[in-house]
Design a protein around this nucleic acid. Structure first.
Lengths: 237, 237
DNA sequence: TCAAAAGTGTTTGAACTACACCCATGT
DNA sequence: ACATGGGTGTAGTTCAAACACTTTTGA
């Protein structure tokens, strides 16, 4: 094994000339931005700018700039559309069918983001974007429906395994709220007692010694995520 | 919510002109091709062609052609280097740092492939590629070490959950062989009795009513994967 | 006093772990 | 006879699921 063959070495500079003709696929990033409110999972959409998709909504996407890392591009798009930074983000998949974009050959890398819809810094008013309940989204421009579905699936697969759900909630939350977010994401009802035991086992959250106020029922304890579990950065880009 | 804003529509044709200046990031695919032999996990590597990485090995990669889906490109690269088709393949991650490639801006999508090193159709002799034990790979060209590590991690995370490991083995195999492949991938020793129970629970394999031959110990039963578990195609590209 | 959600424990089954002995074959 | 791996079962633990009643608050 491993016989050595002496290759004809190419320098990067010479190589660049040969490659120029291949620099003709555009690269984009699409952000699937999830939020949670009133027992419902929402996704941020905007109306497609393309004639071909008039009347349809699309995800937040843009081409990657020549001097921008892929993750930088994703954070830029998020910031441009929401005013938010330091948001939880995961790369999901890269979609590369030849005909997926009518403008030309564009491959796109999909990320999902989890944001707190109550965040005061969230600035979508006056922009061409809005929140839509994920359950009601039936059709999107491009292959964005497929992208959305895969992001939901990945969110569902990971949300019980890793402490990521807290990015969707305010700093302090009740166990009831936490359970409702899980139910909205997973699309199932959970048993309250089993849920509380499971969350206790994870050891992600801590009692804040405060209670809900101004609720028309017995107030619950408020919890917060333990420090160190609100990281937004990925290991790999 | 969802106030409508009337956007200025752009046609795909007009849009294409605006985008031309962005068609300047190259897109590549890197295949991490895994094989198994004699209690070891191997990866297929070749010597880097670039002066900058002289003496280092690299993964099998190439630029994506303008009329080629991302997965097509990955299968083409695999076929060019191994002569194999219809191989198990999963997309892992897309790496997009600005400076990851000395030739210019190249983002790359990594796939891992599982091949049977005993496959008669495997044709790497005379090509500039060879198998290296994964454990011994310490340094690679570009960011290929990072790509390899992430592919190994994804393989490890999924190999017990999905019936993919059989692509690394001949059609018929003993439970001992199967256990050894798991051990090579996971980097741990497994208890034989517990392993057999676990595999029985998965219900992936079936007894072939044949036995090992010409082994210098008590021969074991030979098994094969149940039909339907050797799919090579992915749901998403 | 009623409505609404908070809070809490037990029982069962499934799956995983650790662990030891006899069996069949080739040399 | 010996070396090598084949083949098997039990006991303990952990985790998940099913399931009901009392408590606290606001209206």
């Amino acid at each position: 094994m491993a016989e050595k063959v002496t290759p004809v070495l190419k320098s990067a500079r010479k190589e660049r000339q040969n490659l120029q003709s291949f620099f003709n696929i555009a690269v984009s990033v699409d952000c699937v931005i999830f939020g949670y409110d009133k027992n419902e999972l929402f996704v941020l959409l905007r109306e497609s700018e393309l004639e071909e998709y008039q009347g349809l909504f699309s995800l937040m996407g843009d081409l990657v700039r020549p001097n921008e890392d892929l993750t930088e591009a994703s954070y830029r798009i998020l910031f441009e559309r929401t005013g938010l930074q330091h948001v939880y983000m995961e790369q999901v998949h890269t979609f590369g069918k030849v005909d997926r974009h009518p403008t030309g050959r564009v491959i796109t890398t999909a990320y999902f983001c989890l944001v707190n819809m109550q965040d005061q810094r969230l600035a979508i008013a006056g922009r061409d974007v809005d929140w839509y309940p994920v359950r009601k989204v039936k059709q999107l421009a491009f292959d964005h429906q497929e992208i959305l579905q895969l992001c939901i699936r990945q969110l569902q697969e990971r949300v019980m395994e890793r402490p990521m759900i807290f990015h969707l909630l305010p700093t302090r939350f009740s166990l009831r709220e936490l359970q409702s977010v899980y139910e909205a994401i997973l699309g199932v009802e959970l048993d309250r007692r089993n849920f509380r035991k499971r969350i206790a086992l994870k050891d992600w959250i801590t009692d804040t010694q405060t209670m809900e106020k101004e609720v028309s029922h017995r107030p619950g304890k408020l919890y917060q995520v333990k420090s160190g579990y609100l990281n937004t950065t990925q290991s790999y880009q």
